[in-house]
Structure formats: C-alpha cells, structure tokens
Nucleic acid binder design. Structure first.
Lengths: 181, 181
DNA sequence: GTCTATACACCGATAGAC
DNA sequence: GTCTATCGGTGTATAGAC
C-alpha cells in the first residue's frame, strides 16, 4: 500500500468525522495499519496526518482544476471542464469538502492559513477565466466567489439533506451563469 | 443568569469549536458555571447541551424567519425582511451556522434528523413565498434551495477567508434574484 | 515497517458538601 | 444552585520486540 493510498484513507475519515472527531483508532481501521504504524509514516501524529491530507487536496486542486482553467480553450469550455472535474471529485455530492469540514470544525484555526490560500488560488484562477471572456475585473472576482460559495453551500445541503440534486444542478448551470453579463 | 442566556453562551462555543471540539471546560469558561453546575441544568450532559442549543436555533427560525415569511406583504418585501433578519443573526457573516458546523463535523449523524427538519421547514416556507409571486412550484423549490445553499456557502467563505463581503452581497441580491423568472 | 504494550493527559460524568 | 474532588474511559503518543 503506497503512502498516497494511505493518505486517501485518512482523507475519507477526516471528511466524515472532522479533525476533532477523527481518532487514531478510526484512522487505524480505515488504513488497516496499527496506531503505531501510522506514527512511523507520520511521526508528528494526527496533525501531520491532517496536513498530509490537505497536501493531497492541494495537489488535486492544481492537477485536476487549475490546469483545466489554464487550457488554451474558450472560457465556457474551461468552466465546463472544471464543473465535470468537481462533480467527479465530490462523487456527485456524496462526499464532503475537507476544507469546509476543517474550516468549520477547527476552532483554533490550525489549518486556516492553508485553506485560505487554496480557496484564494481557486477563486483567482476562476476570476481570470471569467475576465478573459470580456467581463470586468470586479464582477469577475465576485462571480468567482459566487461559484465557490455555491459549490460549498451545495455540498453542505447535500450532506444535511442527503440530497445531491442541488449540487448537480449548481455544477450544471455554473459555466453559463458565470459568463452572462 | 437565565437559562436562555446560558444556552446562548453554549451556542457561541459550539459554533466555534464544533460538537467534538467543544469540551466541558470550554463550556464552563464561556458560561462562568462550574462543570458540575452545567450538569445541574443539563443532566444528560454535553449532548443535552447541544440539543438545547439547537432548540434555541429552532425558536429563532420560527420567530425571526418563518413568521416574516408569513406576513401579509408582497413576496419581495417578505424576502427583504428575511434577508435583514438573517444578516443580523449571523452578525453580518462574522459568526457560523450551528447547523452547518454540526452537519459537517458530526460523523455519527447525531443531530442529522433535526437539522434536516429545520432546513426543510425553511426551504418550504421560502418556496411558498416564491410560488405566491407567480412562479411554478418546481422552480420555486429550486430557488428556495438556492437561497439556503448560497447563505450557507457564503458563511463558509466568510469563515475560511475572514471576509464577510460575499455574505452581505448574497443577502442583498437574494430577494430580487429569487423572484426573477 | 508493523506489531504489542503502555504512559499520560484530558474528557465526560458523578458524588457529596455547602 | 454552585462548588470541590474524583472516577472511569478514551485520546494521543511512545518504547521496544520482531
């Protein structure tokens, strides 16, 4: 089992139980590794495991989202590619966003800086795409924020209502919505 | 100090640290009451305290939101009243939604049923208002879901980016946006 | 690398004085 | 009603065998 696979298991647990709610026992069960074995891979313990999880999400953002937004394509097509990728990543809405779970669950702002950074990268990349379709910088930025905010809200609704329809609806209409002026 | 005031202190802590992240020590400090004293007011312990917190939010929903949506007023005016009330309740976006914090943080779905119920009440009341402006039942329901989803997403963004502008923008435009066809 | 065994702190909860 | 004192359980983390 590769380290990447281990981290994927960790992510699953963190997403479901939040940072405070995930215990080493749960991480043990999810990975199939003993508690002490987890410390071999992550000597600094639970916090390092969460950091590794966030690292992997950062890589996802870069390789599965930001690259798409830089493609030599029309703005509309790039946004459609992004929607599809987001939908896949969140399993059509059946899974939660680690950023949201950590941001809302961690009162000590342990991971605030990096979550802030990741969200900002995404918003700025989106704003650039929207700008390139001829929309002004300020409304483009606002539309980019709207996109992220709708995705996050839809995921919250999906989890609270056990209904993924709003999430899929949001992702479907997003590309056109972000470009209309 | 009244029980209502005590519960308000509990809510503050739960909102900041999530269910798993709030400890009795923190609740003690926030209320000024000793741990054992808290058990006098809430014999079943932490879970009962969280239930009491959710009870108070339920009362807020009824008395500060749902009543407004039932006023003998135009749809637009009712939605504007709601926006204003929501903005006040969440301190212009500086505070989090207990439903979101509990829904995302609690992996065991301890409070899922009641959060689901509260959100559904809100969505249905909104859909009714939108319907009464002449919009069909299905799009009205979707618009109502959009409203909640945008509010929730905006609160997540506010907490992650420490920026309440998107939240205030969402609430400002929501009344008109929900009624255009 | 993975395990068993264990240390130690903190958490939720209770007993009982006042 | 509020307090001090304390219990049992669980959580994170570590030592050391294999």
């Amino acid at each position: 089992m590769s380290k990447e696979q281990i981290i994927s298991c960790l992510i699953e647990v963190f997403r479901r139980y939040g940072y405070e709610g995930t215990t080493l026992v749960r991480l043990s069960q999810a990975t199939g590794l003993n508690k002490a074995s987890l410390y071999y891979h992550f000597p600094k313990g639970k916090e390092e495991m969460a950091e590794a999880a966030l690292d992997q999400i950062d890589r996802w953002l870069e390789t599965e989202i930001l690259v798409l937004l830089r493609q030599p394509e029309t703005s509309l097509r790039r946004l459609r590619l992004m929607s599809k990728s987001v939908e896949q990543f969140f399993k059509e809405g059946k899974t939660s966003c680690l950023w949201a779970v950590f941001a809302l669950g961690d009162g000590d702002d342990l991971f605030h800086a990096r979550i802030h950074r990741a969200l900002t990268l995404w918003i700025e990349a989106l704003a650039k795409v929207i700008t390139e379709s001829g929309i002004g910088a300020v409304p483009a930025r606002e539309k980019a924020e709207d996109a992220i905010l709708q995705i996050q809200g839809a995921l919250m609704l999906a989890r609270s209502l056990k209904n993924t329809e709003p999430f899929q609806r949001v992702l479907k209409r997003l590309p056109e919505e972000l470009l209309n002026s």
